[in-house]
Structure formats: C-alpha cells, structure tokens
C-alpha cells in the first residue's frame, strides 16, 4: 500500500505554473529521490507536501490519515537552508520542536539526546546554534525533522550546500536512516541520488518527466556504445563495421572506433563474429554503459 499518494498536484503563481499536475506514489520504507535541474519545481513540490505552501489544485493523501487530520504530524521536513534560533542550544531547539509536536517534556528530552548522538552532535548539543558550522546545522536540521518520529522524512537538497566531508557525513546518515523510515529527498546531483535511493522521480519545468527505479531508468535510457581498438587501418575497418547489420553509427575518435547500435547484444555478436572470421587485428573491445550524467542530461533535455 502506498504511503504517500499525490494526484495532479499543481502550483501556480500569477501566470507562472511552477509545478504542473504531477502525480506519483510510493510505498512505505522506500528512499525516493526527487531529481531535476535547478528551477524544476522540486522545492515547491516538497513545500506543498509539507503543508508550507497551499497547492493551487490537486490532492495529497497519506496512508492512515483521515481528511481532517494534520499532515504535519506524520512528516519531518528539512528545508534547503534551515535557519534556527541562534540564541538556543541545539538540544533546546530539538526539545522545543518536539514539544510543539505534542511530545511530553521527558520524552522530547530523551529523544533529543538520542538524536544528537545519532547525528554526531552530542558534544555540541549544549552550545548555541549561532556557533554551529554549516554541516552541523544540516545535521541538526535532520535531527529536528526526526524528533517527532515522522513516518516520512523529507529533505530538500540535504547535501548540495556542504563541503565533501559534510556531504559524506550526511549521505552516510541517510543511508542508515533509510533502514527504518521512508525518505523523500530532492537533489540536482544524480550520483547522490544513485548512492542512497531506490526510486527516482525526475522533474523538469514543473512536470514529472520520468519515474521508476534506478535500474528501470538505466534500461530505458541505455545507449550503450562499443569501443574497438585496432592495430591498424582504422578507417578501413570503420567502413566495414558501418556496413554490418544493426550498427547505427560508427566513427573514429582518439584512435578508437566508436560504435553505437540499437540492440547492443545483437551488434556485439555480428561484430565479434566478423572480427574472428576475418581475423581483425583487434586490441581491445569494450562496452560503455551511458554514464549517469549522460542519462540525466538525456531525460531532462528531451
């Protein structure tokens, strides 16, 4: 059963449609990435899901929630640039937002303590937030999103503003967290999404252009290329390969023969059997899967 179901969600400012009728759903326990270039509507979508923005139209439904229930009880949200009360300590802030989510004082304090430990801020917990570094604020942001044990954790660009070390910390933390909760996070960096998530939702100009698991997307957008290394007569073999059935293009670049084909398995067979029949001077043969970035570019530039 789907944990979150979104139907025809739209957000319009004056004449500009920022999010255009997107629909998707995902099950409990998944880690879902909302991916797209800057300005695709990722933040707006997350803000509508968190209740911070009112959708112009469309519905958002949460498993087990009735119509008059407050969706905010079930979600934890980390904005892209979280801002805290500088005069509070990290621990005070966690307890405060926990209490706002109807936790008892004791419960909030105990959970705040555990969360600070989990995000690696036990020592900094009693210091003023004003003195925290960017990475520490981001980790405190994740802790505050989890304080009331939400069913869904939403993170808006959790790593894009961090340095490599902070980024690594947060990605590892997310990897741990996804064991016991559902995560929806936005990013414009595909390799981050690939690293931690199971499913992808690709947004472009406010529209949902693609969705599915990482492997499904790979299969759809696979444009495998073959690279042939030959000892001599590259131009001669290029014409030979180009004439083979199933080969769609063939060119020379950096002393390699680049071959693309619709059906990679079939093309491989014909090329290799031709090579062994005619005894080509092959030095190397490789199949290059399209890189993640190539795939991303293909999806969003279509």
């Amino acid at each position: 059963m789907a944990l979150l179901t979104v139907q025809n969600l739209r957000k319009q400012y004056d004449q500009k449609t920022v999010v255009d009728s997107i629909s998707f759903q995902f099950a409990s326990g998944k880690c879902v990435a909302l991916i797209g270039p800057n300005g695709a509507g990722k933040t707006t979508t997350l803000r509508m899901l968190s209740g911070l923005l009112k959708p112009s139209s469309g519905t958002i439904s949460f498993a087990g929630m009735n119509r008059h229930d407050d969706i905010r009880k079930y979600i934890g949200y980390l904005p892209q640039h979280p801002v805290f009360y500088k005069w509070m300590t990290g621990k005070e802030f966690l307890v405060y937002v926990g209490r706002l989510a109807y936790m008892s004082k004791q419960e909030a304090e105990q959970h705040a303590f555990r969360l600070l430990e989990r995000v690696g801020l036990s020592e900094a917990g009693n210091r003023r937030i004003g003195k925290y570094s960017g990475g520490m604020k981001q980790r405190l942001g994740i802790a505050q999103a989890m304080i009331h044990r939400p069913k869904l954790l939403m993170l808006d660009e959790p790593v894009s503003s961090l340095d490599p070390i902070g980024r690594r910390d947060v990605l590892n933390l997310m990897d741990e967290l996804k064991q016991d909760m559902t995560i929806l996070f936005s990013t414009h960096i595909l390799s981050d999404a690939d690293e931690v998530c199971d499913e992808l939702l690709v947004l472009r100009e406010g529209k949902l252009v693609e969705s599915g698991t990482m492997n499904e997307l790979r299969e759809t957008y696979q444009t495998a290329k073959m690279e042939l290394g030959l000892e001599r007569n590259l131009a001669f073999y290029r014409d030979k390969v180009a004439a083979l059935p199933g080969v769609s293009a063939c060119f020379i670049d950096r002393n390699l023969l680049h071959v693309s084909a619709q059906d990679i398995t079939e093309a491989r067979q014909t090329i290799l059997s031709a090579a062994s029949d005619e005894d080509w001077p092959l030095t190397s043969f490789a199949i290059n899967r399209a890189s993640l970035e190539d795939m991303f570019m293909k999806v969003v530039n279509d």
């Binding site: 911070l52 905010r72 904005p79 109807y102």
Partner: peptide
C-alpha cells in the same frame, strides 16, 4: 523573513 518559521510551522503548530 529569516526562515525559522519554516521549521516551526512545519510541525503541527
């Protein structure tokens, strides 16, 4: 203006 309210009002306040 600062954005703190985003963290507060996303809780069931």
């Amino acid at each position: 203006k600062s954005g703190v309210s985003e963290l507060i009002l996303v809780k069931p306040v």
